[in-house]
């Protein structure tokens, strides 16, 4: 094993890891929001992101729209896409056992993934935008421009959601419904509506992610499988339902990916990320920012 601990390589890995971590946080935040509000894990969240990536891809490659302008389309589209899926499948079984809800969202994920396979074939689709090869050099460290933008987007998105939940009326309604649905109902809050709103928001964040990712990522029917796995890990690490924890969880996994790849030989790099995950499960199973319940 030849370990590589040289300074420049490591600092490059750390910077890339932070950028990647922000991206991981951005794609995971919707999952943790939805869980926090209605105690449902949307196992189709990875496939929702796939839909957003395809949408962004087609807008950019066929519509010749600037990737960052597509946000104006992808975010509202994913908002209503989420609401549509919620209305059609999840809201009828909100009171059913957790297992049924899990199965249902897994079913939705299989449908989306394989519909995409039929419609768009298994090909990986990426598009060269004018941002794609934009790099920022700081000393010996290189930062990819679109990744930096995605990172900033992740921070803004986390803060915006946090601000929205803390200070606005619909945000407060969402938090009240999350804490105690029956009390919220008594206070005159339309709980099913806030669930719908929260699910839509959780889905809309993926619209943002899709647009921000398309300059340096790709769309494919199975793109949501790996990204979905990342979401699950990040949400568990961050503490389920914890927005700030989600950001920290994203950073941990992003750093594990890049530092592992820089320091360890190829085949062990992937193992490293999952080893980190298992270590966190062992020592902080309740999440990085959550206190353990007694």
């Amino acid at each position: 094993m030849n370990l590589n601990f040289s300074g420049p390589v490591l600092s490059q890995a750390v910077i890339s890891g932070v950028m990647l971590g922000g991206l991981f946080a951005l794609i995971s935040i919707g999952l943790t929001l939805i869980w926090g509000v209605m105690k449902i894990i949307n196992f189709a969240q990875g496939e929702f992101l796939m839909v957003a990536l395809y949408l962004a891809f087609f807008l950019v490659s066929w519509g010749h729209i600037d990737p960052y302008i597509t946000i104006l389309v992808t975010v509202p589209f994913m908002f209503f896409f989420g609401i549509g899926i919620f209305r059609a499948t999840i809201s009828p079984i909100l009171k059913d056992p957790v297992m049924n809800q899990i199965m249902l969202t897994l079913g939705v994920s299989l449908i989306l993934q394989n519909l995409a396979l039929m419609l768009f074939s298994a090909n990986v689709q990426s598009v060269n935008t004018r941002y794609s090869s934009w790099n920022i050099h700081i000393g010996s460290v290189v930062i990819s421009g679109p990744q930096l933008i995605a990172f900033i987007g992740a921070i803004l998105c986390t803060l915006a959601l946090w601000y929205f939940l803390k200070t606005t009326d619909p945000g407060r309604a969402i938090r009240a419904s999350a804490q105690n649905p029956s009390a919220a109902t008594l206070m005159g809050i339309d709980v099913p509506r806030t669930y719908l709103l929260a699910f839509g928001l959780g889905s809309a964040t993926l619209g943002l992610a899709g647009s921000l990712m398309i300059p340096f990522y790709y769309a494919s029917p199975t793109v949501g499988v790996f990204l979905g796995l990342i979401m699950f890990i990040v949400v568990v690490l961050g503490g389920m339902g914890n927005l700030m924890g989600c950001f920290v969880g994203g950073l941990i996994i992003g750093l594990a990916e890049t530092v592992g790849a820089a320091v360890l030989p190829g085949s062990l790099a992937r193992v490293f990320t999952f080893a980190i995950f298992i270590l966190f499960l062992l020592f902080r199973p309740q999440g990085v920012l959550t206190k353990r319940q007694t």
Binding site: G107, V108, L110, I111, N114, M118
Partner: peptide
């Protein structure tokens, strides 16, 4: 139609749960 088999599974899961 590659994926038709898993599409079927997805559909069955959703319909069964509903």
């Amino acid at each position: 139609y590659p994926g038709s088999q898993l599409l079927l599974y997805g559909g069955v899961m959703v319909l069964t749960m509903l």
